[in-house]
């Protein structure tokens, strides 16, 4: 059963439409990448999937259920977690508290899941009591992902998870994303590091000016001349 299916999505922030009939799908176990120039509407598409954008036409289906009319807190309960591009931690709260907030809707014991996240991100385990706002960019990005994983989602949305990181951290991040995916979690991510992202993904979408431009497998997109010209540095 298709995990996420976005169909003919049109909408924006109340003013002019940003998205003009975008289609996209994620199958279980897939890593799907969205690339495109700045301002193409990639982040907006992510937010739209999460009920944070005014949708005029089209629908978002999660496991065949229409989630278009749901609020973010209801969408979270379906099994989707989202890591925004910016401001993706609670800066005045500790690492531990950030993770706890990620699991707010859980009523069962969250310790085991938290320990799993700590073993996946040992750096976070060392800093349980540190205030998120005082951590480095790379650490914050880990925390943001950790927070989103607290619900053990079926699908993880990542908006530019490697933005602003050093090359070493970027490589680590891609490895981690693959590991998360290997645990059976579907990944939909927006990436600027197109080359690396396309190399690890199953399929990719090129978005320009709020429209689908090209969609294909990662390998084919890497080999595509237009894509190479636009995003891979010639």
């Amino acid at each position: 059963m298709t995990l996420l299916s976005i169909e003919g999505l049109t909408g924006g922030y109340g003013g002019a439409d940003i998205l003009h009939g975008v289609d996209l799908r994620v199958e279980p176990g897939e890593i799907v990448v969205i690339i495109g120039p700045n301002g193409a509407g990639k982040s907006t598409l992510m937010k739209a999937a999460f009920g944070l954008v005014k949708i005029k036409e089209g629908a978002v289906l999660f496991e065949k259920r229409d989630i278009t009319p749901l609020r973010p807190d209801q969408i979270v309960r379906q099994g989707i977690s989202y890591v925004p591009q910016e401001r993706n931690v609670f800066p005045s709260m500790s690492v531990e508290e950030n993770l706890e907030m990620g699991a707010f809707i859980r009523t069962d014991d969250i310790r085991p899941q938290m320990e799993r996240i700590y073993s996946f991100f040992p750096r976070l385990a060392e800093r349980r009591t540190q205030i998120a706002g005082s951590m480095s960019g790379g650490e914050r990005q880990m925390l943001a992902m950790g927070r989103a994983l607290m619900l053990d989602p079926k699908l993880l949305l990542l908006d530019e998870p490697t933005a602003g990181l050093s090359p070493l951290f970027i490589d680590q991040t891609f490895e981690r994303i693959q590991k998360i995916n290997a645990a059976g979690i579907g990944i939909l991510m927006v990436e600027q590091n197109a080359k690396q992202a396309l190399a690890v993904c199953d399929r990719g979408y090129v978005l320009t000016m709020g429209r689908n431009r090209i969609d294909d497998t990662g390998a084919n997109l890497l080999a595509n001349k237009d894509v190479a010209e636009m995003f891979l540095g010639g």
Binding site: F50, L52, P72, D73, V76, R77, Y82, P84, R87, N88, V89, F90, M101, G102, F104, I105, R147, L151
Partner: peptide, 8 residues
């Protein structure tokens, strides 16, 4: 915003 998307 993050509180909302965390399901709070």
């Amino acid at each position: 915003d993050l509180a909302l998307v965390s399901g709070i």
